[in-house]
Design a protein around this nucleic acid. Structure first.
Lengths: 235, 235
DNA sequence: GCGATGATTCAACGTCTGTTGAATTGGAGC
DNA sequence: GCTCCAATTCAACAGACGTTGAATCATCGC
């Protein structure tokens, strides 16, 4: 007697589209957009591949939904930070940029590799979506650099767009590559690689863009400390 | 009468394995290692996919052969440059590093994306090959930084491995991403993006690592000038 | 209780992939 | 001119892929 393998119909606890996105994010993080298969995503989510097509139009639509879930918070934080009335020195504000990126992207290699991959080998449909998401968060950083130049804290000959590109891209490269490069290629431990690398990077970067590099950096808050605890070190 | 589509047997001009590598390089450059298919490579080379298996053991072996063709010259140039008796100031020697990388990798996005991709999602077999190729060329750069510190030209607290990582990775990111980011995301022209970006980057980097950042950079030779014409500007 | 609707699975499609074994042929050596 | 080998192609394999249409079941409104 052939047992019907699995009962069809809705499960006891229904599948939220967000759960599918969680699974997709995990698989994308492991394999990248192209290599990630819908079957692998379905297995990760514990459902049939066809269910994905009930909630999303296609694999690309799933990627777009992932972007739509991840980017607006980053954009909101960055735009708040780049408000011109912020009285903090430029160094601190740029460090806040780093912290915002870090909090939002450090645990999501999938999104990172997706973004980079689509910029390099951009499929047509996704290019517009990407531009719409990335442009505002680059412009927010750029406006901080613009203001730093106007205030005389940064070199007058600094190219603000290039400065933005350098800061952000190196941050993401540190997340993506530094642990592996240090451990696999150099035999060093990888546990503190990201924090050490990011601090060294920001120090180098600041010297590179500051009008007077001999002025040392002010004390910077911890990378992953809570956003509401910028002043208190102990409760 | 069914025409035998193509005559079998050897062609009038035989296929050099190097020609296959050329084709593979081109396709890898377009599509990346995973997405590049042997059928696409064969079409690019004008032969049958099976011929690839006559000259190479597998797709991975083809990739390894590509590395073996591209890296030894870079390694040789860098090791000659890092000889401790070189009397030039550290800034000039580091700029030579940039030029060596540039000459050898600027026209080969395939190799670049392959290396990076394999570091991020490293397949087991290729990881060792990569390490064997990359480690020496990173150590050569590191030894220049080490010497710069010892001579007092660079900051004493500079971490040489991180400094190497920053210099090289940002160079490759400028090649891979800057033109696209500037044009597609910002609407700027992309033709001089790489040269402008690289010079701005080296300027920033040098300020970041120099012991005395207020000393300006010496005049630097052109990026792509011939390697034998470092002194003579006119014959 | 019943029918509609929404959520889920099954099975299959056509296409592409890396890879292999057998068939074929041009040219070199004798 | 014959033989042999090296180089090339053909045809096919088994598996994975994205995607779709139909079938199934659970639950809700009535």
């Amino acid at each position: 007697m052939p047992t019907h393998p699995r009962p069809r119909g809705p499960k006891p606890n229904r599948m939220d589209p967000d759960q599918l996105l969680d699974a997709a994010q995990e698989v994308f993080a492991r394999d990248g957009l192209r290599a990630a298969s819908l079957r692998a995503i379905a297995k990760q989510a514990g459902c049939d591949p066809a269910l994905i097509y009930y909630h999303f139009d296609s694999k690309e639509a799933m990627f777009a939904a992932l972007l739509a879930r991840r980017f607006p918070p980053i954009q909101k934080e960055l735009e708040a930070l780049s408000a011109p009335e912020d009285p903090r020195p430029t160094a601190l504000r740029l460090w806040e940029v780093v912290r915002i990126y870090h909090r939002n992207l450090k645990d999501d290699p999938g999104i990172r590799s997706l973004i980079r991959g689509e910029i390099v080998h951009g499929a047509e449909g996704l290019a517009d979506i990407l531009q719409e998401r990335i442009r505002p968060i680059m412009m927010a950083v750029k406006s901080i650099l613009d203001r730093g130049i106007a205030l005389g804290e940064l070199r007058a000959d600094l190219h603000p767009l290039l400065g933005t590109f350098f800061l952000v891209r190196m941050h993401l490269e540190i997340l993506d590559l530094l642990p592996t490069v240090l451990s696999r290629l150099m035999g060093l431990p990888r546990d503190r690689a990201v924090e050490t690398g990011l601090q060294a990077w920001f120090d180098l970067y600041w010297r590179g863009i500051a009008k007077d590099p001999s002025i040392p950096l002010p004390p910077l808050p911890e990378l992953s400390a809570d956003v509401n605890a910028t002043k208190e070190t102990h409760p």
